Amino acid sequence: MSESKKISVGIVGASGYGGVQLVKILLEHPQVEIVYLGGDSSAGKEYGDLYPHLQHRVKTKIEPIDIDSIASRCDVVFLGLPNGLACDIAPPLIEKGCKVLDLSADYRFKNLDTYTAWYKTERKDNSIASQAVYGLPELYREDIKKSSLIGCAGCYPTASLLALAPLLKQGLVLPETIIIDAKSGTSGGGRQGKINLLLAEADSSLGAYGVAKHRHTPEIEEICSDLARNEVKVQFTPHLIPMPRGILSTVYGTLRDPGLVTEDLLTIYTAFYRNSSFVKVLGNGIYPQTKWACGTNLAYLGIEVDTRTGRVIVMSAIDNLIKGQAGQAVQCLNLMMGWAEDLGLPTLTFYP
């Protein structure tokens, strides 16, 4: 496609935190034009009333979700809906010629039985779902380029899989020893009012949730199994941190070769991500902080080998709303359209 012609983009579910991040990024993207913002409960409202800080840039109302109207106006559609809704909306959009990027869990699974078991939603879109590509560009770049349906990776899985991928792809760890200890800011819980996300509840506190049953577990395991070419189960424990955004995922695994040292792993990781401009492998003794990634599409990786225990520890920091959601979706869009992968995506944080 010629870079002189902008593509028409729609966002279904534009009123949530992921939606507003998409709006912000796409407003600054040189190759797209937002022509449709859609929602259910917010339909009919001015977008600037939902987000007054954008009134000077967005003069658009939230429209009802109408498949025919969306398909007639949009080349590309982002779906930022709760789990279980995209699987009804994506198939007709695909059939009408749209490219679709889904930010929910609906198209992240090759095995729909796994999806149904964890998300309690029966599926009737097997043929369309089989065409979907997992939207983590650093691992599936070439497949994304050829696809019209992307199941964008979840935020916890993005941070965790970027930390794990070189270890599993090259058989460096014993898969059964993998433990993921991850912490996320409160925006990961969405914009709906929830008691556990109230300032009085979350501030000055740190706690785990979804222990041994978080829905991102099977997503992580499916991709880990693909990378390792064997079934992999992981121990994944998420925690809520009293800050608006950011994820720090700390991954542990026992090395197959106890003779490996930190410098060896740094060399391996640097080579693995040599063509991935958004992944920053930090030097020896430097460990990532969420503040560094805040507002960017970057992932910072820090690596340490504990020769005493024979374990590798990999720390991964991302912005859950950008690299973990909206920015990654736009990264996938760039690949689908044949543009530079980093086009229109932020790489500089506000600091401090």
Rank of each mutant, 00 (worst) to 15 (best):
I313E: 00
E304Q: 06
K280F: 09
Y287P: 01
C294F: 10
D264C: 09
G253K: 00
A228C: 12
V279K: 10
T307S: 13
E304I: 01
A271Q: 13
T217I: 15
P244I: 02
T309I: 04
K291R: 11
N297E: 11
D226T: 06
P258G: 12
P288T: 04
R245C: 11
R245D: 09
T262H: 07
P244L: 06
L260N: 08
Y252C: 00
G295M: 11
I303S: 01
Q235Y: 12
H239M: 11
P218R: 05
L255V: 06
V251S: 11
G246S: 10
V314Y: 00
L240R: 14
L282Y: 08
L301K: 03
L255F: 07
M315G: 03
G246V: 09
R311A: 05
N275A: 09
G302V: 01
K291D: 15
N230P: 00
P242W: 02
D226S: 10
V279Q: 07
D264P: 02
P288H: 04
V314L: 00
K233S: 14
K233V: 15
V279E: 02
W292Q: 09
R308G: 05
N275M: 10
S249F: 02
H239E: 13
R229Y: 06
A228S: 12
S225H: 00
T267D: 13
A271Y: 11
I313K: 06
G310A: 10
I286R: 13
E263D: 15
T290W: 02
L282T: 05
I303H: 02
C294Y: 08
V251N: 10
P218F: 07
L227K: 01
L255E: 03
L282H: 08
F278V: 10
D264W: 09
V312H: 00
G302K: 03
S225M: 04
F278W: 10
E222M: 13
E304H: 05
G283F: 11
S225A: 09
G259Q: 12
Y273E: 01
G310Q: 05
V261K: 15
R274T: 10
E221G: 02
G246F: 06
L260A: 12
Y252H: 04
I313R: 03
E221H: 02
G259M: 11
E219W: 07
I223C: 03
E221F: 05
I303R: 02
T307L: 08
Q289S: 14
D257E: 12
I241V: 13
K233A: 09
S225L: 03
S276L: 05
V232H: 00
T290H: 03
Y300R: 06
D306Q: 03
R256L: 12
E304M: 07
P218T: 07
N275H: 14
